[in-house]
Each structure stands twice: as C-alpha cells, then as structure tokens.
Amino acid sequence: MFTTLIQDPPAAATPQGPDYATGIATETDKWGQLTKLASTFDDVDGLFYFTYVVCIFFFVLITGALLYSVVRYRRKTYDQPAASNVTHNTPLEVIWTVIPLLIVMVMFAWGFKGSLDMTYVPSDARQYKATASQWNWLFHYPNDPAKSRNELWVEIGKPAEFLLESTDVLHAFFLPSQRVKRDIVPGRYQSVWFTPTELGEFHLFCAEYCGLDHSKMYAKMHVVTAEEYADRPWDTFDDSTPEAAIKSGESIYQSACYSCHSVDGSKLTGPSWKGLFEKSGDQIVGAKREVIAGGATQTVTVDFDYIKESIHDPEAKKAVGYENANMTPFKDLNDRQIKAVIAYMKTLAQ
C-alpha cells in the first residue's frame, strides 16, 4: 500500500539533460587513475593497482627488449644475417609460462574474494528499491511512502542494499564512486549493496545501453549525515504556501483516492469529495453529513478531525448510503498531508 499512497514523481518523457552532480569525476584517488573511492569496497582499488603495476612492469619489459633489439641489431646491409639463430630455450619458456600463471592466479583469487564480499549483504543494510525505466530512475525508500525520481539520498556509513527492477529493457545501476554495477534485467530482480563512506553528491549512471536517451538516464546520489537523512530529503511534499499545499493534496488524491472518490459529485465506491466543504460568503466551511457511528445515525460537521478519522479509521463513521463500502485505512498520511488533502477538498467547494 505504501507504493500507492503518494504519486510517483513525474517522469519527463525526454529529460532536458540531467542536472549533473559536479566535480566528482575530476576528483581522483591519490594514485590518479580511478575516481575517488567512496565506499568500503577498497579491494577493487587494491587489485586494480596491483594489476596495473604488474602490467606496467611487463609492458616496460616487452617494449624495452623490443626497442633495445631494434637499435642494437638493426640490419645495416641487405645480406646481414641474424646475430643468433636460437629457436628455443626451454628454461626461459617454462619461466615465462609459469610466472604469469602464478600472477594471474593471485589476481583471480583476489578478484573473486572481492566480488564475494560484494554479494554478502550486512544484516543491518537498509533495503531500497530502484526501478529503472526508459529513461529515468525511481527510488523507493524503506518503510517510506515517498519516492524520488532521478535523485537518491543515502546515509553515510550505513549499508544500503538496492533491489533492482526494470520495467522495460536492460539497464545497469552504476555508481563509479562506490565501485558497484549491476545490470537490471526485466523479468527478475537483481540486488546490489554498498556502504557509502564519503559525504557529497555522486554520479549514478545507466551503464547498459537502453535506447534513445540512454546517456540522459542519469541520477544524482546524495550521501548525507544521519541527521539530514532523518529529515527525509527525498520527500518532496510541500505545504509551504497555500498553492503548494493544494497541489500536494491533489497529487495525493491522484495517487491514492481517485479510484473510489470522485471530485465532480458522481457516485463511485465511496462518497464524492465535491460538496464536503461549502462556500459561505467569502468563507469556506465544512458541510453537514449524515453518518452511521456504532449503529446509530448522527450528523457531523466536516472538519479536520472528521477527515483524519475517516482516513485513519474509515469504519468509525460511515457516510449514509455507503454503509457497505470498505475503505483501506491510510494510516501513513500524517497531519500535514491530511491538511494538504483538505486544502485540495476546499477547492471543490461550491
């Protein structure tokens, strides 16, 4: 039910270009190759640099031997024979077979251990869900009805696990700073986890080609402190002005209420919201309603308490004519949200 309570943030069909997080890719780790590590998966960096050094060693060895030979043994006359006609050297060949073999086995074991760590999710991980669609991201927060689109907030030092789903084609959840990537396969769930260790804004890319606006399928991850996280910054519910409150109320109606309550007076499963409030001069006041409470009919004036009770405990007072309708209680709507709904109801007053 959480998922239906508050409408998804709107998805732009063709985003106008993402509002990029800034200054992240240019901020490198101390060795200058990878982007700055911001998670606990430091094995990736360790193995990367180990391999890197091994590669540079072999590259220098090969190139050095080549260039030396070219300079030293360059053919000066057209009939100059080779300085040596050795065709094999068994100890040498064994050495250059066995030593690389040992080195790559170390790399394999290290890499596999690192990737196993990436699959063992700590038990205290917060479970998020990310829904990828062409071409946007929708993030669901644990036990929270609010969702955010193309922006994500996680808490520093707290393991975060993501259940990944796609609504259409392949996508991939890629956080370079956290060293994690996972393809999102339609038809099943995948999961990925990490523990952010740095505060700030980070890139979240789609790394698997997904069509037209693949490159614009971008999200910004905010890693915030526990206090900031507790403020639920992803909740875009806004009642700072009367207009914003009406808009928020309407959006709650659109996502949760519209299927049973009309706003034009027509009769659906539940009573219409039209006429809950009436115009009286320049004032908008609650209308009088006949309700059945505890088997007895009584008259109530529509006000905040009545609306809140009807949302949190619909069985308490049932409107006459709708005795048999059963409404799901929406206990997660808080007072601010209910006030926003009422602000929207008041716009329907006649």
């Binding site: 669609s133 259940l163 789903e165 609504t167 339609p186 038809g187 099943r188 769930y189």
Partner: peptide, 12 residues
C-alpha cells in the same frame, strides 16, 4: 529475490 511475473510490470 523473487522472480516477478510478467503481469507485475508495465511496459511502454
């Protein structure tokens, strides 16, 4: 991790 069935998701 469950395997969702096709009807659970919406396609453009």
């Amino acid at each position: 991790i469950k395997t969702p069935v096709a009807s659970e998701w919406v396609h453009p």
